[in-house]
Simulated assay, not measured.
Amino acid sequence: MPGPLTAAPRTLLRRTSARLHGATAVLSLCAALVVAPAAAAESRTDGTPPVVSAGQVMPHLHALQQIADRNGGNRAHGTPGYRDSVAYVKAALDKAGFQTSLHKFTYNGTEGYNLIADWPGGDADHILFAGAHLDSVEEGPGMNDNGSGSTALLATALEVSKAGLKPDRHLRFAWWGAEEQGLKGSEAYLRDLPAAERARIDLYLNVDMAGTKDNKVWYVVDDNAAAAKAFKDYFAARKLRTEEIGVGGSDHESFGNVGIPTGGFATEINECLHEACDRIEQIDPETETTSTNAFISTVWQLAARS
């Protein structure tokens, strides 16, 4: 995560380091994990969100860990580990029927990439935008910060495809680069996005650190009432504690800074934040799956409102 979300000790945080070449091994991993777009006859139009299991979510985190292991132990801006992370997610989305593109930017003399994925359909004048940062710091693989959020986001997108969802709002997903450097990827995207296009974004939802082991609270962004209520209601129905946080300290800050309403959540911070020990072993599959299903449920709910 990038800098503090609140003045309190529970903070979210900042980023550092990206590059892009999809290795054959990365692409073959995708083939086993991704479902093709559902046929029209299977389209989910009743507004009922799907529920995923740990078996559907955790393989993506294991894939990101393997990418880091093959590339010097990290997935940071300007590194092969980040490039291969982007290639992995992009291949999954392409197979699932998303319209993907790479938004390129330069930071600290190095080319960076944001991966943007649009789900066909929905009202293009009313966009529900969901995102997470994909990069880690140079010190480690970043499995909780933020492989966990990137995985929750990818699992959500794949469920949209599997269901053949026909949302009222247009759905856009993004995996940000160089956020550990100080939100550089999301800032660059919004800087390059014309004002008229920004005005079409109704709401941005963020997920940062979704799988903290021994997590006891979910921190919910309180900027947008509908998003905050959707997340808090989901956790409350499962007797899980939430606390509200403001706009700041993670990818949603860039959107808030240009006047776009934001929502999202994060789990607690642990001692492996921005360290080499932020590995797959630090992820609790139950927490990660709960977070993923909370994100899916909220996207389903808010996509149906125009």
Rank of each mutant, 00 (worst) to 15 (best):
H77G: 10
A54M: 02
L93M: 06
S85N: 06
A91D: 11
A36G: 09
H103G: 07
P49I: 09
A68D: 00
V34T: 15
P9K: 07
A36D: 15
P50V: 06
P80E: 09
A87I: 01
H103I: 14
A36V: 14
Q56L: 15
L33P: 02
S85T: 12
G55I: 02
A23M: 05
S101Y: 08
A92I: 03
A8E: 12
H77L: 11
G72Q: 02
E42G: 14
K104N: 11
E111V: 15
G72V: 00
S43N: 12
A76Q: 08
L29W: 00
G47Q: 13
Y113I: 00
D94F: 05
D46R: 08
Y88D: 04
L61E: 11
D69C: 01
E111D: 15
A31N: 13
G55S: 04
P49G: 04
V34W: 03
P37K: 08
F105P: 10
V52W: 00
H77E: 06
G22M: 02
T11V: 05
A32K: 15
H77A: 08
L29N: 01
I67M: 04
Q65E: 11
T106C: 04
A18K: 03
N108G: 12
S53K: 08
V34D: 07
S28Q: 14
A31Y: 12
A63D: 10
A31I: 10
A54D: 05
P59M: 09
T45N: 10
G78K: 12
R44D: 10
T110Q: 15
N74L: 00
Y82T: 05
L13C: 06
S53M: 07
T48P: 05
V51R: 11
V34F: 05
G73D: 00
P80Y: 07
R10F: 15
I67A: 03
T79E: 02
R83F: 08
